[in-house]
Design a protein around this nucleic acid. Structure first.
Lengths: 367, 367
DNA sequence: AGACTCGTTTAAAGCGCTTTAAAAATATCG
DNA sequence: CGATATTTTTAAAGCGCTTTAAACGAGTCT
């Protein structure tokens, strides 16, 4: 039950310290001007009163809010990860962030509006689904940074990973392991899928051959992944690929599930690679080889893009492309001859169990 | 590149509509007073100008901020779920929320301070780790609602699930399936663990017998769960429990992983129940039977607790205890002799007996 | 001593909105 | 129709802080 004896104001500190509010304001913000003795008495007074500035008033008075707005899908582990790093990066640069979650009942447009109400000075949009024109319109009146997605919208800064290169990494890894028939489980319509698909196509063409390209319709959910896996499995065994690269980790998860239910050993009967290196991929139960988009680097780049505009007056849009890297875990291995799994679960379940997966290079994530 | 021609202010709308700012303010907030014609012209003017109120100024001017502060572990799926529902519930009551994420570099204390800086009128703390005295101290000056955890701190509202009853549900379910030796993988020190452990103890005593109680040290992480599983497996086979109830889903995940690595079939060789019914549990690859804390209900109750204090002037602390329910999935089954079964979920499934304990919900995996 | 610095301090004018108290306009009534 | 009650409108005083421009002393120089 809050005691309503209104908390101390700047004026209270001022009168207690025997100076003007202007001096107090200056001292408290570490601005030059006030003498040492003034500083001391102000600081003392503030401490004694337990003074804490009212950000609202402060924001109103100064032009700057020093606020970065972030929209995110709060149920996305990848976004959560980015957020942590964004928070830290913003902190370092003296910015505060306000988060606007996307939920069933709150689409991206609303989330952005909410951020604007808070008078955020820049918007960091995690994996925005807004159209390019919408983004461009937004960017007319605000600083906007699109994260994790290519955007052909004038004026918006973009920070993303080279998804095509990421998929190429996955393909190369599989080829190294000996795979020659590698399928790609496509994602949903959109620029991200297109880029990853292209990366897959060119890598396979280059490393295996043009006729080895196999793109399976998929999506970004487990169900979509599962369906894709089923489709692949229905292929005649001779032609069945020995490895699958999925659009993202969730789809990969669906793939894994389907494979296991169908009794296909992983990675013995089929290698699987995901994308995002989400925490789910890292779960011991999943242990999915995946492509990491280097979230820390993205976060830093995004915050930097925003603060550069705000503080250094940059006005040209930037397009930061980061190199992804592959995190090898237990779902990829040589396209070995089917091994008998000693401890089948619900039919068959291979993978990382008993014994180690041979040529699997373990690699910690991180920059 | 934002055009700096400062956005329209209340005054601009006023002059355009040919009325005073006071009228505009009234109209825009739907307050009674202004006549229909005034309303219309104001609304028109506002629309034409693309006016959007400056929340900062608004907040400063009125006493109320209508802001609820939420601290959360952004990497917790359970918290993310709660958040969605909190957002919705707050929305409905005309409150906005500001989220303060806990990260590696940002502990609960800091997160709370940040919320206070935003002048939140109430704090909703998701699974707070603050001590009771700390909570009580906070509650002296602010409205605080602790969610998901018991709190013996004066003045703080508490919204939580009856964890003991939840664990009892799990035990009853297992007993129904035929299990007689059910171990509990304990959680970390703290009130939550204590409550769940107690629920386990009394349920086993009641349904099986006092000497069937077996509590294994554990924790709240996968590693802890894995270790606990290893410990259980090292038991001589005769005495080895046939089912494990874990402190939470993460620990359960670790348990599952260990079991599978050790070649123990699930649920054939061992049934496993988690706690939280987190999205992870719902993954098709995991398909974990788990106890749900009914996050929607918690969210609503929490928001209600806060708004009651703010709007209805309630001053007594409340302690809302919600009934959890069991979500049965694929990791529990009869303690039968291992069967080879492609669809383990097709197998036996019991109903909980205990009449007074609430719902047991069967729910398909893979949301 | 007066004219001029230069380093400190502060009075006062906002920031954009809400709200109160009072004025203005309109309606009601004997 | 003047007086009173009622509904609408508005001028103006903040909300708590920042910031500008002016004021103030204390040195420095001629």
């Amino acid at each position: 039950m809050p005691s309503r004896p209104s908390r101390p104001r700047l004026e209270d500190v001022a009168s207690r310290a025997g100076v003007s509010t202007a001096s107090v304001s200056l001292v408290l913000r570490g601005q030059p001007g006030p003498s040492a003795s003034t500083r001391e008495s102000v600081l003392d007074a503030a401490r004694e009163l337990g003074y804490r500035p009212d950000r609202t008033a402060s924001l109103l008075a100064r032009r700057r809010t020093k606020l970065l707005g972030v929209t995110m899908d709060v149920s996305s582990a990848f976004h959560a990860e980015l957020l942590e790093d964004i928070q830290a990066a913003a902190d370092e640069r003296g910015y505060d962030i306000v988060i606007s979650p996307l939920t069933r009942t709150r689409d991206e447009r609303r989330a952005v509006e909410s951020l604007l109400d808070f008078r955020c000075e820049a918007l960091l949009l995690l994996g925005p689904t807004l159209t390019d024109p919408e983004l461009a319109a937004l960017a007319m009146d605000h600083h906007v940074v699109a994260i994790g997605r290519r955007a052909a919208a004038a004026g918006v800064d973009v920070v993303r990973a080279a998804d095509d290169a990421g998929v190429a990494l996955a393909v190369a890894h599989l080829v190294d392991l000996g795979h020659r028939s590698i399928a790609f489980v496509d994602g949903p319509r959109g620029p991200i899928s297109a880029l990853r698909r292209r990366g897959y196509r060119s890598a396979v063409r280059r490393l295996v051959g043009g006729d080895a390209v196999l793109v399976v319709p998929g999506g970004s959910t487990e169900d979509a992944g599962g369906d894709a896996a089923r489709r692949v499995l229905s292929t005649e065994t001779g032609e069945r690929p020995t490895a699958l690269v999925a659009f993202n980790d969730r789809a990969a998860l669906g793939v894994l599930d389907r494979l296991r239910r169908e009794g296909v050993e992983v990675p013995g009967g089929m290698s699987v690679v995901g994308y995002d290196d989400s925490p789910i991929a890292r779960l011991a139960t999943v242990d999915l080889t995946s492509v990491s988009q280097a979230p820390e680097a993205m976060a830093v780049a995004a915050v930097q893009a925003a603060t550069e505009r705000l503080d250094s007056g940059r006005t040209q849009a930037v397009d930061v492309v980061l190199d992804p890297h592959l995190v090898v875990r237990g779902t990829t291995g040589p396209p070995a001859h089917p091994r008998v799994d000693v401890f089948p679960r619900a039919g068959a379940r291979g993978n990382t169990s008993t014994g180690e997966v041979p040529s699997t290079v373990r690699q910690p994530p991180g920059l």
